[in-house]
Simulated assay, not measured.
Amino acid sequence: MADQPTKRYAVVTGSNRGIGFEICKQLATKGMTVVLTVRDETNGVEAVGKLKQFGFSETVVFHRLDVTEPASVSSLADFVRTQFGRLDILVNNAGNGGVTADEDALRDGVLGKGFRVGNEIDLNWSGTLMETNELSEECLKTNYYVLGDAENLTEDKVDQVLRIFMNDVKEDSLEAKGWPTLLATYSISKAAMNGYARVLAKKYPSFQINCVCPGSVKTDINYNTGLLPVEEGAESAVRLVLLPNNGPSGHFFVRMARSEF
């Protein structure tokens, strides 16, 4: 295995708070230069200020990024190219829950009544697709089979599954077509990302490209109803990006363990 460069550079999306913020902190602790990104500049600058209080004034910088805007993605890519000349690590953390919440129900522990399904495909799928390219019952069974068929999976096939899903959302036929109805868009967008990671891993065999489920982590996105602290959630992702060059690629991990799709 070739020696790692003395200095390494990382970009973490959606990282002004929660797991993303903690990933930035842990990577900076390892001596890396980390680009903290978020849509809102005020939030980003504030987050970097907090990290500077931990002594990372020279290792963490902010750059605005909206993963759903091609121009914003290109701007970040240009920044990395100009400032560092390369990128060693990209953590696609940006996303949203795709739901609104009944906080009273959540406080009472009624999870199924606490969340109302929304639509997050554009952020969790389309945004990550653009960014990664720039920076380097029977219906459900059939579509999950397509996403799980690693050897024959393509970007077009992943996109086709999402188009079918979105059409069924518009027609209000998720239940009739066998899709999950609780947190539907969240579940399908994450399944698509797992599939797309496999496509990228085949396309770029010299890169390590994996997906990780950090577990049920207490963050604002779930109104702090999770079980794990953000430190443990972030640790799962950081462990993956620090694997040696001959480590696994194209896999799905649940916390620290490799898992089936």
Rank of each mutant, 00 (worst) to 15 (best):
L162M: 15
A176G: 13
L242R: 11
L240M: 09
K177W: 05
V238T: 05
P180T: 01
A234P: 00
N167H: 13
V217R: 13
T219P: 04
Y204T: 06
F207S: 12
A237W: 03
K202F: 02
S173H: 08
E231R: 15
K170N: 13
G250H: 05
G250N: 07
L200Q: 11
F252V: 00
L242Q: 12
M166P: 09
S236F: 01
S187A: 14
D168V: 08
S173Q: 14
P248N: 08
D168K: 07
L162S: 13
L243F: 10
F252H: 01
V238A: 03
V241A: 09
N245R: 03
I164T: 10
F253P: 14
F252P: 00
A234C: 00
A234R: 00
P229F: 00
A197M: 03
G178H: 15
G215D: 02
R198M: 07
P214S: 08
S216I: 06
G226H: 10
N222Q: 12
L174F: 09
K177V: 05
L174H: 08
K203Q: 07
G250L: 03
A191N: 11
D220R: 12
I188A: 04
A197F: 03
E171V: 04
N224M: 09
G178Y: 14
F165D: 05
P244S: 06
A201W: 02
V238N: 05
M166H: 10
S187V: 12
A197R: 01
V199N: 11
A197G: 03
A201E: 03
A191F: 07
E171C: 13
I209L: 01
S173V: 09
L174Q: 11
D220N: 08
M193L: 10
G215P: 06
L162I: 15
N210H: 02
A197V: 02
N222F: 07
M193K: 06
H251A: 06
L162C: 15
L174M: 08
G233I: 04
P244I: 02
V230D: 02
P244F: 06
V238M: 08
I164A: 06
A201P: 00
D220M: 09
P205K: 11
N210E: 04
F165W: 13
P244D: 08
W179M: 01
Y186R: 14
N194Y: 02
N224H: 11
P180Q: 12
R198Y: 00
W179E: 01
L242V: 05
E175A: 14
L240H: 06
K190P: 14
T219R: 10
S173E: 10
T225R: 02
R239W: 13
T225W: 04
G215M: 05
R239T: 04
A184Y: 10
P229A: 04
I221R: 07
R163S: 14
H251I: 05
M166V: 13
L162V: 09
S189A: 11
N194E: 03
N224Q: 10
A237Y: 07
L227Y: 14
E231N: 12
G233V: 02
N222E: 11
L162F: 12
M166Q: 15
